[in-house]
Amino acid sequence: MTEQTNPLVIFDIDGVIRDVGGSYRRAIADTVEHFTANAYRPTSLDIDQLKSEGVWNNDWEASQELIYRYFEKAIPREQLQLDYNTIVAFFQSRYRGPDPDNWTGYICDEPLLLQSSYFEQLTLAGIGWGFFSGATRASANYILQKRLGLKSPILVAMEDAPSKPDPTGLFATIRLLGLDKLQPVIYTGDTVADMYTVEKARIIEPNRTWIGVGILPPHVQETVARREAYAETLREAGAAIVLSNVQELTSVQIEQLLR
C-alpha cells in the first residue's frame, strides 16, 4: 500500500474488542429489573431490538429507555420520576462493582475477542489504527491497556465526543492518528449506530472513502437464524461486509474492500 492510500482502521470496543454479553448487557438487564421492582428483565433480544433503532449507543440511556417503555404502558412518561444519575450509579455498581477504585464487577470477566498481535500485524502492513467507543475512558483503557497491553492507544471515548451515531468522535480519532491525507477510513462496529456513524461521516466529508464493517457480537452467534438476522440488520444500516470476528479484517481483506 502506498502512503497516499494507506487506510485508517478505527475500532469500536464493545462487542468488537471485548464480549460484553455478560457485562454491559447483563448490567442493563440488572438495572431495568431493579428499577421495575423485579417486574421486567429485558432479554438479550429486547436489548438488540432497542439498539437496532440506532440511537441507543449509551447503555445508561438504553437502560433508562427500557424502564420508561415498561412503565409507560400504564403511566405517561412525563409523570415518571426517574432519576438518571441514580440509574447510572446502580448500573456502574454492577458493571464496575460497588467500589469505584477497586473494580470487582462484571468488567473483570469480559472475554477478549482478539489478540494484541492483531494490531501489530496492521502496523506492519502500514495501516494506522485507533479506537472510537461509547465506553467511558476508564472502562476502555481497562481493556486496551490493562488486558491487551497496548501502550497509549489512540482513543476517543464517551467523555470526549457526543454519542454515536454523531460522527464527531470518528473525525476526532482521525485527527489524533496524525497526518491526514484523506486516507480511506474503515470503522468496525457491532451495532446499527456504528454503521449510521459511517453514513453520517460520509455526508460531511464525501471526498474521503468511508467503509463500515459490521462485526457480529458473540451473543448473536448462538443460532444461525439470529446470526443471519443480525447480519442483515447491519448490512441494511450500511455495512459493506459483516464478519464473525474482527481479526478476519486482515490487511488482505482491507485491500479487497478498497478496490
Rank of each mutant, 00 (worst) to 15 (best):
211 I>H: 02
144 L>C: 09
161 A>H: 06
12 D>W: 14
14 D>Y: 07
108 C>R: 15
47 I>K: 05
117 S>K: 12
27 A>V: 00
130 G>Y: 02
172 A>R: 10
74 A>L: 10
44 S>T: 05
200 K>S: 07
75 I>Q: 01
170 L>E: 06
126 G>P: 00
40 Y>W: 10
221 Q>D: 00
219 H>P: 11
182 L>G: 14
39 A>M: 07
256 Q>C: 12
211 I>D: 02
168 T>A: 13
152 S>P: 14
170 L>W: 08
130 G>Q: 04
132 F>Y: 09
103 W>F: 03
109 D>A: 15
20 V>Q: 05
259 R>L: 10
194 D>W: 12
34 H>W: 09
49 Q>S: 12
221 Q>C: 12
184 P>N: 03
257 L>E: 04
185 V>F: 04
183 Q>F: 03
18 R>F: 14
11 F>R: 04
228 E>D: 13
112 L>V: 10
35 F>Y: 07
121 Q>G: 11
227 R>Y: 03
107 I>G: 02
214 G>M: 12
12 D>K: 14
38 N>F: 10
36 T>I: 07
149 G>C: 08
81 Q>P: 04
44 S>M: 05
93 S>N: 02
56 W>M: 14
182 L>R: 14
204 I>E: 14
114 L>C: 13
193 A>S: 13
215 I>Q: 08
18 R>I: 15
176 L>I: 11
